[in-house]
Amino acid sequence: MKHTISLLVENSVGSLLRIAGMFSGRGFNIDSISVGASEEKGMSRMTIVTQGDDEIIEQINKQLHKCINVIKVFDLTQEAFVHRELALIKVKATQAERLEIMQIVEVFRAKIIDICPSGLTVETTGTEDKINAIISMLRPFGLKEVSRTGRIAVKRDFQGSVN
């Protein structure tokens, strides 16, 4: 099963290497890993998406706790959480195709952030499914470059039922 784990880690190159190395050394999967500054000075927040059965996920959580650079480990999968991924997609576009691409972009509520005679750069944010979908829609025009951030996630503060 897919798990989203959010970590608060010391902000150092060593932290990322130690965590990534622990995953590869112990044969755990990483679907995506994304890291950036957090609200606390000197601390980064890292979101890791991984897969495994319950025993493996338990080991992953325990091994993450053991890393001395890791301050906190939250396996968000047990709780309600929101997650997003950002992608920048450079797609080929002839003058004739531009309009069609812009329509697709609009349907996905994405944005065109750069344009040149031979193509467009699209920015899109959403779940992985949505990003996969827009990429599939744009692929026929010719993808020049795709850059994705991997998932970032936070827990929902309101955990109750909305109804």
Partner: peptide
């Protein structure tokens, strides 16, 4: 003392 040793 090491939780990761338990149930591994």
């Amino acid at each position: 003392i090491d939780p990761s040793c338990i149930g591994k």
